[in-house]
């Protein structure tokens, strides 16, 4: 068992006894990704965002979420996948990341939301070490569920890196 999987087990163990933590899965270019369901605030339809200058292309802009200004991150572009035309079928998963005091609310634009799975930490395998691409840093592990392979994401790292990279784009 790798370190991050251990950490996730600890986190889950604190929250809800011995029960395995629940994950929400979403689809992106044929692959299924999983995020902790406790991080998910809501799922909503896509709307046009207001573009923010000096940000990388995967930051689609900001939208109004009941009075708060929230950035949208296009997960296809974030992972270097072929972008698709966003429309009515596009889904935004609104997640909360970061410590409770400096919690950020961010919208992730995905192809579709699939289902909820319970994944015991013991089922999570370390991500394969292929190449040194920065995107692999966002993967916490892999889990086989009902014969399919799910990719567990490390949301904190993903979002923090996205915001930081946006900062880098400004200097360029």
């Amino acid at each position: 068992m790798n370190e991050s999987a251990q950490a996730s087990e600890e986190r889950a163990g604190r929250g809800q006894g011995a029960a395995a933590p629940e994950f929400l899965t979403f689809r992106l270019a044929g692959e299924e990704y999983a995020i902790e369901i406790l991080r998910v605030q809501e799922i909503k339809g896509w709307e046009r965002a207001t573009r923010v200058p000096h940000t990388p292309p995967y930051v689609l802009g900001v939208v109004n979420l009941r009075g708060a200004i929230v950035p949208l991150i296009d997960m296809r572009r974030r992972f270097g996948l072929e972008p698709v035309v966003l429309g009515q079928a596009t889904v935004v998963v609104v997640v909360r990341v970061g410590a409770s005091t400096a919690e950020r609310i961010v919208g992730l634009v995905v192809d579709a939301v699939c289902e909820v799975h319970r994944i015991p930490a013991s089922d999570v395998q370390a991500p394969p070490e292929v190449g040194a691409g920065s995107e692999t840093g966002f993967i916490r592990g892999l889990a086989a569920v009902e014969g399919r392979m799910l990719i567990l994401l490390d949301l904190d790292r993903l979002v923090t890196a996205s915001v930081l990279e946006a900062l880098g784009a400004r200097a360029a």
Binding site: T50, V52, P53, H54, T55, V62, N64, G67, A68, I69, V70, P71, R104, I105, V106, V163, A166, L167, R170
Partner: peptide, 18 residues
């Protein structure tokens, strides 16, 4: 409205509004 709350400060932009 603050842009930094959920995102970050952007040069040339003081904030947002709805």
């Amino acid at each position: 409205k603050s842009l930094e709350r959920n995102f970050r400060a952007v040069p040339g932009i003081a904030g947002g509004t709805i």
